[in-house]
Design a protein around this nucleic acid. Structure first.
Lengths: 279, 279
DNA sequence: TTCGTTTGTCGTCAATTGACGAATTAATAA
DNA sequence: TTATTAATTCGTCAATTGACGACAAACGAA
């Protein structure tokens, strides 16, 4: 809470200049999820970064003239936007693994750059975190879902299975979940209600589509409606948490699980409506 | 990963002495969840601990002769076991809120004692964390559940509702969930499989009892069986996460939610078995 | 080549932070 | 009262850690 209050207020005129200039060119890059950045992990970095930083920093001399697109080295003088994208990409993995309290020095090392360089792209660590959050957390929601979910030419069971399969694979990933949880736990309210709003949309669409195909009418109260949809949505979300956070050894395949949960949901749907109406 | 490797190896003979002596008297105290410790929060501590630590530490002089049981002050010279219990109690709240990276100095302040004193009871911060985890996380599971859940003189719907109501209120609390998540995220493997094992027991009992009352037979494969029970268990767990971690504003009452989920589960149970057998 | 621009690094500051030696103070027994 | 024991604090060390000023090196246009 106290940790991220200080908002750096640009003193170095030099950095500010290039910063402002380059920022404009970035507006169109939002959601361009690291299109051409291939650097994912920098090779080295076993795990004990204990070794007294002597003899470290051997990288700069090793990067000869080579650097063909085959050798994924992180530091060879990149243009502003590319480097920024690369940092964001590495930072996503880094903070997902090490938590929001991960150290900038370690992050820089993973990027293959000096720690100081981070501050050319992000005024403070908090800004970097916010950017990561916006790109990775909010960017993981796809608008197509709403289209596909409402395509009544296909049976609803198929649509639900397809959706949740995709949702599990492309959104409820280890990276995404860990970031979301770290952010939620830290009460780092960086774009808090967007997610809730989006998910509520999903819940409503799901309920509407199932009810339509089954020819039943839904209860009025939205809270009740949401809670009913959470029966499925929550079970699947929690499956992902078990898998990626609690690291339970789950023997069934994702597809099996999804199809089971969807089918159970559909099987109990009618009763659920009755039961909740009688309540 | 690197953070909690160093295991302090007792040097101060003085501390070690009283330590060992007092430890024996503690074995019976396990699970004596802070029976007589009333200190919960130390009054002060708004939120910005910014104020340059001048003038702070006003506590010691303020604790006059009074200290009747009415004034919950934390530091008046307690016997070893009591103080230790109090620290554990405060630490639970503290780490649940601030994460496992919370600072010992802040914790000590909340306890109303000096930071140094913590190290008389716990050799390292990691030991303190492990102790908190064992008491609060593992201690939250009740053996009675298994008895009550299998009491076939009552209808299974009643048993399930009663169980999940209690589970939500006494286990899936904010404190418990946050601690578990922080610990899981940190991969701090402090008693990892106990929880999984206990929950699996619950899942199996639930399935067995429902199947018995409904007069259906269960599939063989345990993984499938568990996943079916997770339909209910996961939905409720995730409800708690929404409530306590994502801080969603949930308008329905806990009891309503529990009863809805249980009834839906029971309503769909037959189909679930069929559907999964056909799979 | 030359010079301005942009990318990048070195080294350092100040605040944190886990850990602990040594001294101080309260409770208890003699 | 006095001596002994146990609870508690002060002050400090060494390692971290976010932030940044100053300088060096690569790049590109003239």
């Amino acid at each position: 809470m106290t940790k991220f209050l200080v908002h750096a207020t640009f003193k170095s005129s030099l950095d500010e200049k290039s910063f402002a200039r380059a920022r404009r060119g970035l507006l169109c890059n939002i959601k361009g999820v690291a299109s051409d950045v291939m650097v994912k992990n920098n090779g080295c970095e076993g795990d004990n970064v204990q070794a007294k930083s002597t003899a470290a920093r051997g990288a700069p001399k090793a990067r000869g003239t080579g650097n063909k697109p085959g050798s994924p080295q992180g530091s060879v003088r990149m243009p502003f936007n590319k480097r920024r994208a690369q940092i964001l990409d590495v930072a996503t993995d880094f903070f997902a693994e090490n938590g929001l309290t991960g150290q900038t020095r370690q992050l820089a090392e993973k990027c293959g750059i000096s720690q100081r360089l981070l501050y050319r792209f992000f005024p403070t660590k908090e800004d970097l975190l916010k950017e990561v959050y916006n790109q990775e957390i909010l960017g993981a929601f796809k608008a197509v879902w709403f289209v596909d979910l409402q395509d009544r030419s296909r049976p609803v069971s198929e649509r639900l299975e397809a959706f949740y399969r995709d949702y599990l694979q492309s959104t409820l990933t280890r990276k995404w979940l860990r970031l979301l949880l770290y952010a939620s736990l830290a009460e780092a309210n960086m774009a808090p209600d967007y997610i809730a709003a989006i998910i509520m949309q999903v819940l409503e669409v799901v309920m509407r589509e199932v009810a339509h195909e089954k020819g039943v009418s839904l209860p009025e109260e939205p809270a009740l409606l949401h809670e009913m949809a959470w029966t499925l949505h929550g079970a699947i979300s929690h499956y992902a948490i078990r898998r990626h956070i609690y690291q339970s050894s789950l023997s069934l395949s994702e597809d099996q699980v999804v199809s089971m949960h969807v089918r159970v949901f559909l099987a109990g749907f009618g009763d659920m409506i009755d039961v909740c109406r009688g309540d």
